[in-house]
Design a binder for these strands. Structure first.
Lengths: 191, 191
DNA sequence: TTACACATGTAACACGTTACATGATTTT
DNA sequence: AAAATCATGTAACGTGTTACATGTGTAA
């Protein structure tokens, strides 16, 4: 039940309509938490009923902007501090890897090359976003900083996946060294 | 619709019952693709109806072991080679980071420390598994090798997340260097 | 005036989780 | 004899996706 808290969190920044929120999910959050507009509108209706949000204004073409109530703010904060993080992750790419032995070597290397390229491109996108934030292109408010942290995750995760695909491509059996030379995390390693 | 293909893939290794498959998801795949037993039994029924699998044997306490049919093998292979990978990922931890600004500095650093510890522990587990595979504790068959690759992903991803949390803890603003200096790609997109 | 972006919603379906129910075999 | 584990399933619910439906304001 993260969607409702995500919506509350976004509304804590500034009032927004279902449309706006839908956009923000597509642009920003979509890559870690996809949400289609039907789900968003539905959740907004429920959040309003439960008094976590209220209509702030009504605009042109029947746009309705919502804002969080105090109750809503309290609720996001409670979620952030008191509710255990759900660490479940869903990664089809890794699931598939368990079945790589069913592919021919040619199919597999083709696949891995595509994957590596994909992840590197995505990682580059996040790195650009991170740099823009660091340059101050979006100000230096606390919200911007939070997004900066999220972008860092996007960069690091996709970089890791790209490197993983490349590693797998070069035949892990040939290369005898394990997952990461053991040891603790030094700052920026690899690459 | 990855569950059915995952089931076919697991059955391609060896015949197994719903119970066995449920266990393998819990132990092995659960961390990248969770599936409860009700879903598994349901999917098995459908797979049997569609002739992708068939009952191999019936054991004690009405255990039913299934095996893949040729049609089933063809279907997993088709999935692996012809169906685009769904790159959607779902990571509550990263979603939350967008709302870190709603937490007090104390709450946040406490949170990040826990997160870092969690990911490091999980990463260590995967590294152990990887080492065991490399030592040949499970033989050197192609299936083992695929699992080795999956374990590598688990190690790398969780290491990356642990490092991310540590990085975030040390105040990203203070540390001026971006996500990873390396190459810059032309105005890249992400999504 | 036509097309496009804005804006909201419903309905049907697919997927996933939790709770409940049942019973057989093995271990203590 | 009781408890634990093996083993399968149903029902209800919650979440997420796709397709469909509708209409408004703005720019070409």
């Amino acid at each position: 039940m993260s969607l409702r808290h995500a919506l509350l969190g976004l509304l804590a920044e500034q009032p927004a309509s279902g449309w706006d929120l839908s956009r923000r999910f597509d642009d920003l959050l979509g890559s870690v938490w996809p949400a289609g507009h039907p789900q968003i509108y539905g959740e907004l209706r429920r959040l309003e009923q439960e008094a976590f949000i209220e209509v702030e204004s009504e605009g042109p073409r029947r746009r309705k902007a919502y804002q969080v109530t105090d109750l809503g703010i309290t609720e996001v904060r409670r979620w952030l501090t008191d509710v255990e993080v759900d660490h479940t992750l869903r990664l089809e790419a890794v699931l598939r890897s368990v079945f790589f032995w069913l592919m021919t070597p040619d199919q597999l290397s083709d696949h891995l090359r595509r994957e590596a390229a994909y992840y590197e491109a995505v990682a580059a996108g996040y790195r650009q976003l991170a740099e823009a934030k660091d340059r101050g292109d979006f100000g230096h408010g606390p919200q911007t900083q939070s997004v900066r942290i999220a972008a860092e995750a996007g960069a690091r995760l996709n970089t890791a996946l790209g490197e993983w695909a490349t590693w797998a491509l070069n035949g892990p059996t040939v290369d005898a060294n394990p997952a990461e030379p053991s040891g603790q995390t030094e700052s920026s390693d690899h690459r």
